[in-house]
Design a binder for these strands. Sequence first.
RNA 1: GGCGCUGUAGCCAAGUGGCUAAGGCAGCGGAUUGCAAAUCCGCCAUCGUCGGUUCGACUCCGACCAGCGCCUCCA
Length: 511
Amino acid sequence: MTIRVYNTLTKQKEPFETVAPAKVGIYLCGPTVYKESHIGHMVGPVIFDTIKRYLVYNGYEVHWVVNITDVDDKLIAQQHERGVPMSAIAEEMTIDYLNNLRALGVDQIDRMPKATEHIDGIIRFTQALIDKGYAYASGGDVFFDVLKDPGYGKLSNRRPDEQQGEGGGAASKKRSPGDFALWKSAKPGEPAWNSPWGQGRPGWHIECSAMSKAILGETFDIHGGGLDLVFPHHENELAQSECCHGKPMVKYWLHNGLLRKGDDAGKIGGRSDRESPGGKLSRSAGAGGLADVIAAQGGERIRFFLLKTHYRSTVVYGDEGLDEAAGNLETFYRFFERFQRMTGQRFFNLPAANTREAGNVEAASEPLSKVVRQLRASFLEKMDDDFNTGGAIGDLFELVRELNRHADQSRLEEVGNVKDPRIVGFVEATRVLRELSNILGLFRSTPAQRGGAAEGVVPKLMDLLIDLRKEAREKKDFFTGDKIRNALAQMNIMLEDRKGGATEWRMGGPS
RNA sequence: GGCGCUGUAGCCAAGUGGCUAAGGCAGCGGAUUGCAAAUCCGCCAUCGUCGGUUCGACUCCGACCAGCGCCUCCA
């Protein structure tokens, strides 16, 4: 019943206890919007979207913040390269990012602050660190002095004196190599803001410290991001905030694993584009922007694929896994269709409990209800244990199997009357599947990517062919009947005969 | 070199100090079907290697082997 989370700071699972009763503040590091997002940018949003759903389901009031970094060296480089103002590039790429989030069903984010909207707070934060002796101005830049912070390195488990630090021109202005910039002086032609240290812009890490403070407070519950951000980004954030406030910044640091390309050892994102020669993603899985991938695969497939594996694991991303996810989803989609045939109701319209408490009804003595309750409890147990979505999805499969089995054994197809108690009981049991899949953000509406009823004349032609085949079969002319079905199969159109003589058709197989 | 992660069936992937080690895919055998599709039933693993702790480890510790990530303003 108690939620436990793995905390990068302590390297162990801990009971989840909020700073303020029943309230949770979550800060997730979002993208630097200098070019289109890639699939790797979606891992954090999908898992944290799920985490928020689960916490809300458990009765917490959750405030989830994802920042947008819209000022940065890479953006400035793009500005020079494209001859387009940084702000325009940022705006364009932010829209791209938001579109991708929406396609994957990520709709739980409460606020998305931009770095450029918090320049004042960043300057105040920087000044405070200087005043307290943790930072120093040097030639128009301001650096954080890592040797002044006795706690520095505790998140990533490093010694400050071992750090290489960034090289180049900044190195000579630093007291020690591990020091990092809070404020950077601007060169001519670069975007700049006035500050006590002259024209300049924020360093990379300070924006998150300033924005999380402004929105979530000096101490909040969960800070998330990709595993690659542990060092230096989160280590530096942590140092800035705790030195500035003299109190813990975050209770739980959660880091998601990174994606790896399937076909070779290349990596996704980062600056490795030219360093991983064989690292191309296949066309369906990766070429073109993420928007193209989503268009080809469907957002739900990608979400399901990501949720199948525990969020802290490395996930190998490629066609193989995506195809498997597609096949897995078919199992559910087919059940939803069957459910509708039997009950006359759409699964996607089923009302279901949206809190743990509301869903916690007594199991009836009859077998279906009992096993459904058991699976529900098992699902929640998995989620309680550091949001084990992979294990929880296993329970969802079992749930569908139990529902199908029950429908088979009770011959629900033959009942005919949707008010029949057997049907009513079945609907009741299926509500639990809706309740649980909602937590994962799955099956919330009719899948967009499924084949089936097309527009225009095709459905009419299909009706005609199905009718002809039916007549042939009634005359025991199976040769003609099979000819129609096989020819359609060649066109990737599958016929499925139902009990009672109806025939349905669909485009394509699971993949 | 420093920090860290992973190694469970053909493949993907949960999990636990001691009942029959989830689930999915593929495969095999059945039920059902005119034949199919879908669905259901059954079969399919001793948990990288070697030691140690323990009454007992796949689960804890150590070593080793293998793969991977970060240490470079990559989520």
